[in-house]
Simulated assay, not measured.
Amino acid sequence: MTNAIEIAVSHQLGAFALAADFTSNGRLTALFGRSGSGKTSLVNIIAGLIRPQRGRIAIDGQVLLDSERGIFVPKHKRRIGYVFQEARLFPHLTVRQNLLYGQWFAPKTDTVGSEIADVLDLLGIGHLLHRHPGRLSGGEKQRVAIGRALLAKPRLLLMDEPLASLDEARKAEILPYIERLRDAFGIPIVYVSHSVAEVARLASNLVVLDQGSVIASGSTIDLMSRPDVPLLSAAPEAGSVLDARILRHEPEHGLSVLETQAGQVQVPHRAQPPGSQLRVRILASDVLISLQPLQGISALNVLSGTIAEIGARRSGGSALEIGIDCNGASLLARLTSKSAAHLGLKPGQSVYAVVKSVSIDGQ
Rank of each mutant, 00 (worst) to 15 (best):
M1Y: 00
I7E: 03
I7C: 03
Q12R: 14
L13Y: 15
A15L: 05
A17I: 03
A19L: 08
D21R: 08
D21H: 15
S24N: 02
G26V: 07
G26N: 01
R27F: 12
G33I: 08
R34T: 11
K39C: 10
K39P: 00
S41A: 15
N44D: 07
A47H: 04
I50A: 11
Q53Y: 04
R54F: 04
I57R: 00
A58E: 02
I59T: 04
D60K: 05
V63C: 12
L64F: 08
S67T: 15
E68Q: 05
E68V: 09
I71M: 08
F72E: 06
P74R: 04
P74Q: 01
H76Y: 09
E86A: 13
A87P: 06
H92A: 05
H92G: 11
N98G: 00
N98L: 09
L99I: 09
L100C: 11
L100G: 10
G102N: 03
W104A: 09
F105S: 12
P107M: 14
K108T: 07
T111W: 12
S114K: 04
E115N: 13
I116A: 01
L120T: 05
L120P: 01
D121R: 10
G124I: 11
L129C: 00
H130Y: 14
S137G: 09
K141D: 06
V144S: 03
I146N: 00
I146H: 03
G147K: 00
K153M: 10
P162V: 06
E168A: 15
I174G: 02
P176F: 04
F185A: 14
G186H: 13
I189R: 00
S195N: 14
S195D: 14
V199Y: 08
R201M: 10
L202Y: 01
D210G: 03
Q211G: 10
I215A: 15
G218Y: 06
I221V: 11
R226E: 07
A234E: 14
D243K: 08
D243L: 02
A244M: 10
R248I: 13
S256R: 10
L258F: 04
G275C: 13
Q277H: 15
Q277K: 14
L278K: 07
V280N: 01
V280G: 00
I282L: 12
L283V: 12
L283R: 14
V287G: 04
I289N: 08
S298D: 00
N301D: 11
N301E: 09
L303A: 08
L303E: 01
I307E: 02
S315I: 12
G316A: 05
G316P: 02
E321V: 00
G323W: 01
I324L: 14
D325S: 11
L331M: 13
L332D: 01
R334C: 06
R334E: 05
A340R: 12
G344V: 01
P347W: 06
V355Y: 07
S357P: 07
V358M: 03
